[in-house]
Design a protein around this nucleic acid. Sequence first.
DNA 1: TGTAATTAGTTTCATATGAAACTAATATAG
DNA 2: CTATATTAGTTTCATATGAAACTAATTACA
Lengths: 158, 158
Amino acid sequence: MSNTLIAEKGEKSADLLHLEAFMPYRLAVLATLVSDSFSTTYSDRFGLTIPQWRVMAAIGHAPGSSASKICTYANLDKVQVSRAVAELVQRGLVRRDVDEADRRNMMLTFTARGWHIYENIVPVARDYEKRLLEGFSEDERAQLDRLITKLAERAAAL
Amino acid sequence: MSNTLIAEKGEKSADLLHLEAFMPYRLAVLATLVSDSFSTTYSDRFGLTIPQWRVMAAIGHAPGSSASKICTYANLDKVQVSRAVAELVQRGLVRRDVDEADRRNMMLTFTARGWHIYENIVPVARDYEKRLLEGFSEDERAQLDRLITKLAERAAAL
DNA sequence: TGTAATTAGTTTCATATGAAACTAATATAG
DNA sequence: CTATATTAGTTTCATATGAAACTAATTACA
């Protein structure tokens, strides 16, 4: 009876894979949860998208970087960086000057307003991270750090 | 000199936040990396998107579930589920029948072809996870499990 | 009962995304 | 040198996404 066969398959397969215990799924859910709650805290206050926030972080980290440096540093593709920068320039937070040493490159720096915003976001970000890791011992933090690095290495190899 | 002031700010702020050490960023990058490499392995072979894969996993786990059950189980919103199901029905992998007990609900089950695909994907998924965690000791796996759960709890609270 | 509120799922619409094509500048080879 | 390849960044275009509006069914309660 094909109906019975299908039902049996269903019962068997139910034990084969539980999404809630499946590592790629768990990582995706966790990252989305963290990302959403974090981005809420800064998009509410500063009106930045995730790529915009990362570009700000990249410029703050290394002012004068080119867009392609930012792609690498912030793990964004060049279209995302191009658009994020355009918007930040538009809003008067970032300056985009041609690098005279190689006129293909853009030199990206903050305006005074950009620095102001950046210096306000950084403590918010630090505080978010602090609250996220509240209740984690020094040992747990070190473990987490190590395990994430190890996982990223493995994933990059697959 | 305002130029000097800005340069000094740049140097100071560069130490304030390193994206590569910032937990929300690291989790996002890791999840994307894992998600991309995993989805490549099954989209190449089975032509499924991420929401479609999760819907398949949900139906395999609990055949006959409604779309809203699948939203909860697979952490997808109802639009994603609606569209993924429509496509899977279209492709002859899933049946969508009205639940006569409550005609608002859809009862989602696999067709024979759907079961076939599902039973082929599950080993691929298991194998991917196995390779991802290759080189992780039992203790490291347990730690990872615990830390992810703990992080997700914290993030949900923020 | 009949009316309001709720729930399930779909569709619409406006925005987000990224691959591929494009422009401009530089580097490399013949 | 000139021609070709490469690199940086932007724009275009087709698809993905999700909030809000919508349809249909059920439940709550006056």
